[in-house]
Amino acid sequence: MSEIVESEVSTTKNNKSIKLKRDNQTFCSINPYPFGKYHNATRYIKDNILNVPESGVSDFIEPWHEYKAFINTPDENQLEKFITEVIRFAAACMNSRTNGTIHFGIGDQPDFVHGQIVGVAVNDKQEYLKALKSAIDNNFEHKHKFAAQKSIKTPRFVEVLNRNILSHEFVIEVDIEPLFAICRENIFHTFNMKKHKKKRRQKMFIIRDGASTRDLLVPTTFAKPLVEYDEFVKQIPKLSQLRKKAEEKHLDLTEHVVKRGPYTMNNCPRDKLIKLKRDNQTFCSINPYPFGKYRDTTRYIKDNILSVTESGTLDFIEPCHEYKAFINTPDEINWRSSSLRSFGLQLPA
C-alpha cells in the first residue's frame, strides 16, 4: 500500500480526491453505477476510486460489493473466471437474501488502492451474456433456475474513460436482487462448475460471511461438518421475512421521496417554515439523512435547518446528534482527521 505524504480535497459533485506518494497520482472518490440501472449516463474514469467497501450484510437492500481486478486472467480463461465468480457471488446473495453487485475491472489491495478503477478489455459483450445464461442453467438446481434467472441481472458494461477519452475498456458489473416474491423461503444450492459430468459434480451452499463468500458444504475434518449448514438453513424463513419487510420499507421510502422530494423555499410546507430574528430570514426545517443509510435519495439544500436538536439519549434508539460547522478548520486538518478513513487508508507513523 502506498504511503500518503500529502492530501488534497477537491469537492466536485460530492467527490473528493487523495494523492498518493507511490506515483504522486491523484485519485477521486466516486459513487458506483446506480443499482439495477442500465441507461444511466454514468461513466467511470480510470484510476478513480469507488467509495463503497466490500461490505457484509447491512439492510438487505443496500448492495454488497465485490471487486475483481480481472487483469491477470488470460484472455482464454476470462469467461470461465467471470461465470465462476458471478455464480458464487449470486448464490451467496440469494441465500443471504441481500442485494449485491460484483464488479470486474476494479482493483483491490495490495496491487491497487481498494476500489481503484482499472477496466478490462471486452471483445464481445454477447459472449458474456450467453456464457452467464448457460452457467445459470447448468449450475443451479433445475427447480431454482427461474429464481436464479430473475435474481441475477444482465451484465452491465460501464465504459472507462482515460483522461476523458474512451479507452475501449469497461467495468463489467452484475447486480443480484433476490426479491422475496421470487426466492420465497427456498435454499439455493449450486454445483462445482469444474466438474462437467453431472454425476460427479459437487454440490455447494454458498453464503456471505462478512466481506467474503464461503461454502458451508465444503468437506471438513470436524465430527459434525453439517452443523453450521443446518443452523443456517433453519434461519432461512426468518431471513426471508426480514427481506420482505425491508422491501416494503424501501418501497414506502421511495414513494415518499417521489411524492414530496427535497424541500426548497418554493415548496416548503408552511408549518416547516421558521423565521430567525437575527436577520429576519426564513428557512425551511427538514429531517436529517436517514440513520444507517448510505445510498438514500436524500439531499441537503444549503441554508435549510435540520429539525433535530443536539440532544442526549432519549430511548437508546433515537440517535444523538452533534453539529460541527467545519468551515474554519484548515484543509489539511480536515483531511487528516476524517477523510482518509473513508478510503480505508492509514496516516503515516
Results as ranks from 00 to 15, higher is better:
L253A: 14
T254Q: 05
E255K: 11
E255S: 04
V257P: 04
V258H: 07
K259E: 02
R260A: 08
G261D: 01
Y263C: 06
T264G: 02
C268N: 04
C268T: 03
C268G: 03
C268V: 07
P269Q: 09
P269V: 08
D271R: 14
K272S: 09
I274E: 08
I274D: 02
K275A: 15
K275R: 15
L276F: 15
L276S: 12
R278W: 11
R278G: 03
D279Y: 02
D279T: 02
D279W: 01
N280R: 12
T282E: 14
F283N: 05
C284P: 01
N287G: 13
N287I: 11
P288T: 04
Y289E: 07
P290L: 13
F291C: 12
G292M: 06
Y294Q: 11
D296R: 00
T297D: 06
T298S: 13
T298I: 07
T298Q: 12
T298M: 07
R299Q: 04
Y300R: 06
Y300V: 03
Y300L: 08
Y300D: 06
K302W: 15
D303A: 11
D303L: 10
N304A: 04
N304Q: 06
L306Q: 07
L306Y: 06
L306K: 07
S307H: 02
V308T: 03
T309L: 15
S311T: 09
S311Y: 05
S311V: 08
G312Y: 03
T313K: 12
L314P: 10
D315H: 01
F316M: 09
I317V: 12
E318N: 13
P319S: 02
E322F: 09
K324A: 13
A325T: 14
A325P: 08
N328K: 15
N328A: 08
P330V: 01
D331W: 10
D331C: 06
D331F: 07
I333T: 08
I333N: 06
W335G: 06
W335Y: 15
R336F: 08
S337A: 04
S338W: 15
